[in-house]
């Protein structure tokens, strides 16, 4: 038992490694708010045209409106029965609890903000965590004489035909459209592949 004479070194090493494992286990925190779907399915869900709904849907009283604007805006006025949930705080414990409850009751929730563009960010985060009972309210909220005005807006609708406008401007100016639409030469985009030159090891 020659090696046993070196017990001191071995036991010190053993104690240290066990300590390390214990510290790691003690400091372990269960990760919260994990994604439940892959980016592929998330993209498919986001592509669904039905994620944005009109304000009429609120006639259905089982639907829970959720206000993601700031506290200040919420206190000034909100859609009836709306729950306040500031955009930056949607992942806080209380808010997750509320969302879980809504989901457990098989209800639908609609998120709204000052405009639909502001809602898409928290909305997209939430659906990636598996809250598939959410929708976006297609509304724009503004105040007129301290009264909350909610009006429907269209999403991703082109307001004007731009090439037509450009041509029209030339006609207005009474000249032939000189083909001076600075056609910049088509850029050839080449993406360099990252080199495979990585650290190598060996004994």
């Amino acid at each position: 038992m020659k090696e046993l004479e070196k017990t001191k070194r071995i036991s010190i090493a053993a104690v240290f490694s066990i300590l390390l494992v214990i510290i790691a286990l003690l400091s372990y925190k269960k990760p919260k708010n994990l994604y439940t779907i892959t980016t592929k399915t998330a993209l498919e869900m986001l592509l669904d045209k039905n994620i944005a709904v009109n304000v009429d849907i609120l006639n259905d009283t089982t639907i829970v409106p959720i206000d993601i604007r700031s506290q200040y805006d919420y206190e000034k006025g909100y859609i009836q029965n709306a729950i306040h949930m500031e955009a930056a705080e949607v992942l806080s414990n209380e808010n997750i609890e509320i969302l879980e409850k809504i989901k457990a009751n098989n209800k639908m929730a609609v998120l709204y903000g000052n405009n639909p563009e502001g809602v898409i960010a928290p909305y997209a985060v939430l659906i990636q965590m598996g809250y598939n009972n959410l929708k976006i309210l297609k509304v724009e909220n503004s105040y007129h004489q301290n009264q909350l005005i909610t009006k429907n807006v269209d999403l991703e609708k082109s307001i004007i035909d731009i090439p037509k406008f450009i041509k029209g401007s030339a006609k207005n100016a009474n000249i032939k459209p000189k083909s001076n639409t600075h056609k910049a030469p088509k850029k050839v985009i080449t993406i360099k592949k990252s080199k495979k030159n990585k650290p190598e090891g060996g004994c």
Binding site: A24, Y28, P31, K196, K198, P199, E200, G201
Partner: peptide, 14 residues
């Protein structure tokens, strides 16, 4: 498994 290291980010020898 416990989330300390992301296995997929580790270097794999070519």
């Amino acid at each position: 498994y416990l989330g300390y290291v992301d296995f997929s980010m580790l270097y794999v020898h070519p």
